[in-house]
Amino acid sequence: MEGLIRELHQELYSMSVGYLYYRSRKAVEEVTGVLPKIREFAEWFLSGNQFGIGAEDYRGLSATLLGILEDIADAIPRKDRVLLHDAAAYGLMGFLELFLEGEKEDGAEGDLPAES
């Protein structure tokens, strides 16, 4: 899962750079292109609390992720790039960083939650 998270984060980052700095209007196509990865990540996360965190925290994080997914699903058919970029760059990317930050701080892969 670590590889997928890293790839997905990188792809969303590229999309966001295009949106913010190059005025790209391709966010819908770009996020649509990574939807299978988003789905795989979401299924993995929502399949159960496997991360050693409290049930309350897990429920909160799950609700956050569902909110992000809902916005992405809402934005794509309406070609709403503002909502889509917001959900992907300021929502999902931050969420993915929860799983990458530990590695950044400690340089230890073991900080990533173990795959189920």
Partner: peptide, 22 residues
């Protein structure tokens, strides 16, 4: 022609701030 947001929910000022920087 459509229905869209004009600012984001999570970081409503973020893109404008970045734009001004560019």
């Amino acid at each position: 022609d459509g229905e869209c947001y004009l600012s984001g929910k999570r970081e409503p000022r973020g893109p404008a701030r970045e734009w001004a920087r560019t």
